[in-house]
Amino acid sequence: MLPDLASLRVMQAWNLPESPGQFVWGEVPDPQAGPGQVRVKVRASALNHMDLWLTTGLPKPPSFPHVPGNDVAGVVETLGEGVTRFAIGDEVVINTALVPESALERGLDSVLDPKMRLLGEHCWGGHGEFCVVAAHQLEFKPKNRTWAEVASYPVCTTTAWRLLRRARLAPGETVLITGIGGGVATAAMQLALHLGARVFVTSRDPAKRARAVELGAEGAFDSKGPYPISADVVVDSIGPATWEYSVRTLRHGGRMCVCGGTSGPKVELNLPRLFFKQLDILGASCGSQEEFRYVTSLMEEGLPVVLDEILPLSEFPRALDRLRTASQLGKVVLEHPE
């Protein structure tokens, strides 16, 4: 799963020399494709909070230097021995959840394999010239979509789809999405609207609330609560700061979908409310190859994505600052030189 770094060749990449620490631009060993692997010339990569967390040492990369970047799309540059599905020059996008090929037999639950690793966390990611992964992690780039659009969806839209699929979201049901602005929250809004749900969102930022309504949300509330609706499904990425109001919003038989905890790692759970209201609590981070393939098909059919800003790869530090201040609504994407 890790690229072969034995070659003396080098590439240019944003990399972390140590952690805690700061990213620097410079030469790192050039990863080569081994058996069953594909080397991709990166055309676009997108930011995630993982890029910030790595600089704090939580999580700490397995080795240094470390190249970040969870969301990656590009062009096949080299094929490892035994790769037959792809050809040099194919335009592709990479699933962030890396698993052994044998895990694909688990279908929708391949992401639950104990050996699952995240691109850009446990191994080198895409904020550099090249990225090497196993061929079974690739899907063909959706037609008629830009590189920036394609790089925006592997983490957030796949995670959102896995949550909403497991939550059995049906047309006409009501969804509350907390903390609109983040990648998964924004993708969940677009997917819920696509599925025919009524969508409401929360944010501390009046401008983000207004923008969400422009994008199709039926209503938007201040995240400090309370929220004047009843919901079948809540998609929460905030955690303890909004948990009580979010759970109170759920109807009997409601489903709480958790994809983050920006306000902290621990919440209090009222057990009688859980069992008397017969609530489900679901969590997800990324998704299976089968789910990723389905989301890729939705992208090809025209599923909207929300891009906050598109910057050149050289402006990665500026992009990090935008993420750090939670200023974005949608994905911040880096375009790479051809």
Rank of each mutant, 00 (worst) to 15 (best):
E81Q: 14
R85V: 05
D205S: 10
L274Y: 15
V201W: 09
E335M: 09
H194T: 02
T96A: 09
L8Q: 15
S102L: 12
G264V: 05
P17N: 08
S203I: 13
P142W: 00
I177K: 00
G107H: 10
P312E: 12
V24F: 00
P20Y: 12
N70R: 14
V75G: 07
T186G: 01
P65K: 03
P20T: 10
R198M: 12
L58D: 15
A103D: 14
G182V: 04
E173S: 00
L195K: 06
E309V: 06
L16R: 10
E27F: 05
W124S: 12
V28D: 03
R43L: 11
G107R: 13
R85H: 02
H136L: 12
W161R: 05
V306Y: 04
K224M: 06
S237L: 07
A210G: 06
S110L: 07
E315S: 11
G182I: 11
P317Y: 13
G89L: 06
M116K: 08
T249R: 14
L118S: 12
R322P: 01
K224H: 08
G283R: 06
L329V: 04
E218K: 13
R43N: 10
G57F: 14
Q278N: 15
N95G: 10
G57H: 04
R168V: 03
D280Q: 10
T242L: 04
Q328C: 09
R211A: 07
G21A: 05
C257S: 10
S7W: 03
L138N: 07
M299Y: 02
D51S: 11
G219L: 04
I310C: 11
L215H: 06
F86C: 13
M11D: 08
M299S: 10
Q32T: 07
I180C: 01
D30I: 03
L79Q: 11
E338A: 15
V155H: 05
L193H: 04
L191K: 01
S203Q: 02
A160E: 04
T296C: 12
L191C: 07
A241K: 09
L119G: 01
I229M: 08
G172E: 03
T202N: 00
L47V: 02
V38A: 05
G196Y: 10
V150K: 01
P61F: 08
K331R: 05
C156M: 10
G283Y: 15
G330R: 02
P65I: 12
P31T: 00
A46N: 05
L329R: 06
E139F: 00
E129M: 08
N144E: 15
A167S: 11
P312K: 05
A44P: 09
G36M: 00
S230L: 11
C286F: 13
G172P: 09
